[in-house]
Amino acid sequence: MQGYQKIMISPEEIVPTAQRMRAEGRPLAMIHGYLAKEKKFNVSYEYEVDDNIESYTVETDGSLPSIEDIYDLAAQWPERELHELMGIEFEGLDTSERLFMPDTMLDGQGQILVTPMKELIKMAKGGEEK
């Protein structure tokens, strides 16, 4: 059975952890995020360590350092995804172009993962709930 280990870290530890993992040749499996209680984002960096996943998790108000310089496109695309769908800022990440959503969708407010479904439906119907 594949193992899973969650390790809480501070935002300052994100870059050193990524550098250590890259130096050890550990692939970055995923950058995952969700809106936890009290409107805090819970973002985790999932590294493959043999048959285990080490999940380095950080709580943030919405701004984190980018690890694109360390993991190249393997980090850039997931960071762009979290920026686009959840509104998390990654310092140094170029977000001038959208990855998934068209610019026109919901007047550019495509952060569907943090917007309640009711509001999304309302926005899709032009602001009027039917």
Binding site: Q2, Y4, A29, M30, I53
Partner: peptide
């Protein structure tokens, strides 16, 4: 709880994380 599993799909590693 939360867990991430990996599966070798036909096109490569598929990662699914559930909270």
């Amino acid at each position: 709880n939360e867990y991430m599993t990996r599966h070798e799909a036909p096109r490569g590693q598929l990662c699914t994380k559930v909270v």
